[in-house]
């Protein structure tokens, strides 16, 4: 209580204003928290009982049956696997490719640097739109292949600028020393710069990872679904009830309904995000500060 300090004042005592402020904030937090809590408790409730409504604070007829269905669903496991691979490979290749370009753009001695700069910047303001982009995906043969998740996501100008800003902050002496020792630019990048850039790589890596984990647009538009279905796309189909787990047969239908099963699936898909959330909060916030520096 002693260390408290508030932004626009240094009072120690709570004033009526503070109580009102605390209560309002509490109410807002509740609005953000409750929907998630609601889905969690419903996922632990028996389906037919849930359909009767009125489950608000805790499960009424507790069951883990919904989770049995979810964990026994081969389609979901497959989608989960695809998503994990997409996230791991996509994040790694994205960081690697973007860092390489960012490194060259951070060097003043890069020839035609201005041209390269504008070739990059122009794409931040103008784009072709969905249909032309889709045609390119088709023409390059990426359509409906696993690589469609990886290659088009390998590079982003925004991330390149963020990483190259960080590279520029690394003392040039290190670069000179490496070059004098006979190292080329590639070797310098991998042995000197990348190890020093861990904080920014963590930040951008988390951006990429969350993007890969959460997106469903790619699956929907650039694949035929099927084998390449990702977790989020599968969840979308569950929520829209255009698909159901295979192991939801007539027998189990008496005990479960598709709603509570989809809630359980949503909870399961949230767990990985929850696990990395402490890191997300730390590194994402850093990244925002970086982004605002640019502006």
């Amino acid at each position: 209580m002693k260390k408290n300090q508030a932004g626009s004042g240094r009072r120690q005592r709570m004033l009526p204003f503070d109580y009102i402020n605390y209560i309002l904030l509490g109410a807002l937090v509740l609005i953000a928290f409750y929907p998630m809590w609601y889905v969690l408790i419903c996922s632990f409730n028996e389906g037919p009982d849930f359909m009767a409504g009125g489950i608000w604070i805790l499960p009424r007829k507790f069951t883990t049956l919904n989770y049995h269905i979810v964990f026994g669903d081969a389609k979901l496991w497959h989608a989960f696997f695809v998503t994990v691979m997409k996230t791991l490979i996509g994040t790694f290749t994205g960081l690697l490719f973007t860092s390489v370009v960012a490194y060259s753009m951070s060097r003043n001695e890069l020839k035609y640097r201005n041209v390269f700069y504008w070739v990059n910047m122009f794409t931040m303001f103008f784009g072709g739109g969905l249909v032309p982009y889709y045609l390119i995906i088709r023409a390059t043969g990426l359509y409906d292949s696993f690589l469609v998740y990886i290659i088009p996501a390998m590079y982003s100008v925004y991330n390149m600028i963020v990483i190259s800003t960080f590279f520029r902050g690394i003392p040039n002496d290190l670069h000179e020393a490496a070059i004098i020792d006979g190292a080329g630019e590639f070797v310098t990048l991998f042995t000197v710069y990348l190890p020093l850039a861990k904080p920014i790589l963590a930040t951008v890596g988390l951006w990429l990872a969350v993007g890969h984990w959460n997106g469903y647009f790619g699956t929907m538009v650039y694949t035929d679904g099927g084998n390449l279905t990702t977790l989020q796309y599968y969840l979308l189909q569950l929520i829209k009830q255009t698909t159901a787990p295979d192991n939801m047969d007539a027998e189990s239908m008496e005990k479960i309904v598709s709603e509570t099963v989809s809630y359980a699936a949503m909870v399961v898909a949230t767990i990985p995000i929850l696990c990395v959330y402490p890191f997300l909060q730390r590194f994402f916030t850093k990244g925002i500060a970086l982004g605002s520096l640019k502006g």
Binding site: V100, S104, L110, V119, G127, G128, P132, Y133, Y155
Partner: peptide
Amino acid sequence: STDYELIVMALLGVLFLFVFAYLPMYGI
């Protein structure tokens, strides 16, 4: 030689943008 290395690195980005940004622009 380091100049060539840097150019190659920067060209990787240009190649990517050519395929995934500039070709779609022509697609308009």
